[in-house]
Every structure is written in C-alpha cells, then in structure tokens.
C-alpha cells in the first residue's frame, strides 16, 4: 500500500531524515513514535506531498508520490486550524466530497452518516467553535471517514485533548479502522498510545532520523482501555518502545518473540 524507501530530507544544512524506510500494508494501522524533533511531521508531510523530500522514494498503491495523492485524508493535531470555522460540522465533512461526483443531497447524506459514526449525529448544524475539542476532533475524523481515502494520515491526532477524550478517540479510531478496513499511518509522541492503537509500531531515532525498530503489536484487533493495558504483553511492549525511543537497544525482550517480532 504505502512504501517509503530511504527517505532523506534536510532543512538547509540540517538533516532531519537520514534514510527512513517503512511500509504499511492494506488495512493496517501503523503508529510511528519517536523523540520530539525527530522529523515525524516531516515524514508525514512528505507522504502527504506537502513537501518534496530531498531524496528517497515514496509510493502509494504503486504510484510514486510527487504531489498530494488523490485519495489521501489527514487528521491534524490542531483541529481548530484544520476545520473551517465559517462552516457547520456537516459542511466541513461534506466539502471535500464534491470531487467524488456526489450531488448536494448525497454529500449531505454521506456527511451525516460519517458524523453518526463518530457519535455526532445531532451536531451537523453546529459550528466547530460551538464544540469541545474532542467533538471537533471527531468532526475531523468524520471528514476523513466520509472521504473514504486509501490511506489516512493522523498527525498527533489526540495530542490536544484531555485524557478521557483521548481514550474515547483512540477507541473510535480502532473501531472505524476495523469497520472500514482503513489503512492508517498515525504519528504520536505518546509511547503508550502507539502500542495501544497500533498493529505495528515504528520507532524512529533522533535526527538524522532512521527507523530504530519496527515492532509487531500482537495484541489482537479488539482492544480495551483497561484490560489491554493490563496485559503482560502490553506492558512489555510499552517498555520496549520506551527504551527504543530513549535511544536504548532492544535489551532483553528477545526471548519474548511470541509477542514481539523484531523486523
């Protein structure tokens, strides 16, 4: 689905990405975690075609990414600057659907259906600034859902909401991902979150960034905020990712290959 090969990017003399390679398979949710300032956003912006990387290759569905790909959606961390405050929630969701060849009524219906899926069935006529941060981020997610992208990018999507909302939104993403078979690349700085939502966790090093580890999170698709986090496997994986983010090696986890596969 998505294949990134030896991605290199520099801002002036400062090399941010030092050859990042990773791939995301169809229907997979891959979380990318790394220390702050490691170029996570640069990586994501390259995939979105918002910046032209200095070197390397990105292909989406076999096609090289040169401009913004057609069927790509994004959820930014800063929902207030991503939703348009002059439009109602439903219009925000419906706006990108015109290019899908839907007429006004169909767009409205698709938007309402998407809002329903994120639990905002009654909020279609509200404006973003009439909603809480969590609700606004749900609208962002609904917009991405209605768009039916082949790849959904999420840039620290839960970074600006409170802890309870964050858990709700994590489960929401897991749900819709399973329900729609959506392929998601999620960027986060939160180690716990990366393990909880990911099918795989890709750990990045400090810049110039390369992939430190690519771990399969073998916790099954059904996750529960309390029960999953209590699993020994979860605790082990979280510690493992934590060590990697801090720049340590893989340590003693090699014996637990049943839950953790080092690629």
């Amino acid at each position: 689905m998505l294949k990134i090969t030896d991605l290199v990017h520099s801002y002036g003399p400062h090399r941010v990405l030092g050859g990042v390679s990773l791939s995301v398979a169809e229907g997979e949710l891959v979380s990318v975690v790394g220390p702050s300032g490691c170029g996570k956003s640069t990586l994501l912006r390259s995939v979105a075609g918002l910046i032209r990387p200095s070197g390397g290759r990105i292909t989406l569905g076999g096609q090289p990414v040169e401009r913004t790909p057609d069927d790509l959606a994004i959820v930014f961390q800063d929902y207030s600057r991503s939703l348009f405050p002059w439009m109602s929630a439903a219009n925000n969701v419906a706006l990108p659907l015109r290019r899908k060849g839907l007429d006004r009524k169909q767009r409205r219906e698709a938007a309402m259906a998407a809002l329903d899926q994120v639990g905002l069935a009654d909020a279609g006529n509200k404006y973003p600034w009439e909603m809480s941060g969590g609700m606004q981020q749900r609208v962002s997610i609904a917009r991405a859902l209605a768009y039916r992208p082949s790849l959904l990018l999420m840039d620290e999507p839960f970074g600006s909401v409170d802890a309870q909302t964050r858990e709700d939104l994590e489960d929401l993403v897991l749900n819709v991902c399973a329900h729609h078979g959506m392929t998601i690349l999620l960027i986060t700085h939160d180690i716990d979150e990366s393990v909880y939502v990911g099918d795989r966790v890709v750990v990045l090093t400090k810049s110039p960034t390369v992939v430190a580890a690519d771990l399969v999170i073998d916790l099954g698709r059904i996750r529960d905020q309390i029960a999953t986090r209590q699993l020994d496997a979860f605790v082990r994986l979280r510690a493992e990712v934590g060590r990697l983010v801090r720049g340590g090696g893989t340590g003693h986890t090699t014996e637990s290959t049943s839950v953790l596969e080092k690629k």
Binding site: I74, S82, L95
Partner: peptide, 22 residues
C-alpha cells in the same frame, strides 16, 4: 492559516472551492 490551505490541498479542493470556501 497555512493548515487551512494544507487541509484544502490534501482533501483535493478545486481552485474555485479553495477561493470561495477557504
């Protein structure tokens, strides 16, 4: 806002939509 423009770009808004809606 740059992020508004990037959102418009990623969601493939046409030039007319970008002008009138953003």
């Amino acid at each position: 806002d740059r992020q508004h423009l990037e959102t418009a770009r990623i969601f493939g808004l046409s030039a007319a939509q970008r002008l009138w809606r953003v």
